[in-house]
Amino acid sequence: MILALAGGVGGAKLAAGLAAVLPPEELAIVVNTGDDFEHLGFAISPDIDTVTYTLAGIANPELGWGIAGESWAFMEQLGRMGGETWFRLGDRDLATHVERTRRLRGGESLTTVTAALASAHGIAHRIVPMADDPAPTIVDTDEGRLAFQDYFVRRQCAPRVKALQLAPDVGPSAAFSALIDDPALEAVVICPSNPWLSVDPILALRGVRSRLRARGVAIVAISPIIGGKAVKGPAAKIMAELGVPVSSAGVAAHYGDFIDGLVIDVTDREEAINGPQLLVTETLMRSPDDRARLASEVIGWVRQWN
């Protein structure tokens, strides 16, 4: 069984590639919930929804998040009434948040709700939230401490990042914990998600990093940096602000001895990267075929280590 750690658009793309080439019993996708929050009275789980919509084949192809062919009547009407419109909820997407909120208030766990919504979209593969309890990421910036979505969406990542405050006192969800201990676990694949905003919140959960390392299986990461730039999102900006080289070598240094291998793009084949074993291939995923090809290469690579 391959355990994928994911968050955001890049993570969702590789997760979809893995789901395209692995049967449901051989893949589990654990998703970051550090950017979850309550908005307009609804429980919002952006990364879970991005992964779900991407695996369901309904994600907006231009944005990578949200639903394709979305309409915005709700937001337009809300704006006319003076409501908050900085975090946009499409009409079809809104149904997800309404149903999630209803189920959570009825006593179901985020794990159970996530599985039910994935099933409703025809997804057979396991999508598991990293935690059932709130585990918010706080961004310490030159403008003060900001809730994640205030930084990411309301302020469009403009403030300079000084540090990230994660949730080390929160434990992983029971489902995630069971996956860590699963005897069938073959390897851990860290998708090309933002290492600081999407992956670190997962690894910061109580005991997760040490327990995964103790399993003795291969742990590999796919670099989200190609040619000194982030494919999408603020990873490069954050790296520069934190004094980390904007390169795959910088990503390798950040993960340190937690990872055994790093997948980098052919563009960066001449980079001096110390520590992990390297797989050099084309990592930019422009199409579903690209996702499946990269996933197949990564799976073949890690399975050679067993």
Rank of each mutant, 00 (worst) to 15 (best):
L5Y: 12
A12S: 15
K13R: 15
A15V: 12
I29K: 10
N32L: 03
F37S: 12
F37D: 15
F42P: 02
D47E: 06
T50C: 10
T50G: 12
T52K: 13
W72K: 03
A73Y: 13
M75S: 07
Q77D: 10
L78H: 10
G82C: 02
A95S: 13
A95Q: 02
H97N: 01
E99S: 06
A115G: 04
S119N: 09
I127P: 00
M130C: 15
P134T: 08
A135K: 03
E143K: 15
L146R: 11
A147Q: 11
A147I: 05
A147N: 11
F148C: 13
V153Q: 09
C157H: 14
P159A: 00
L164Q: 00
Q165A: 14
A167Y: 06
D169K: 13
G171M: 06
D181Y: 10
D182P: 04
L185T: 01
V189W: 01
L203W: 13
L203I: 10
R209N: 04
A214H: 04
A214F: 00
R215H: 11
I222H: 08
A240M: 02
V244D: 04
V246N: 01
A249R: 09
A249E: 06
A252T: 07
A253L: 01
F258S: 06
G261D: 13
E271Q: 14
N274M: 09
L278V: 15
L279P: 02
V280I: 15
V280G: 10
E282A: 15
E282L: 09
T283W: 02
S296C: 12
I299P: 00
W301E: 05
V302M: 14
W305E: 14
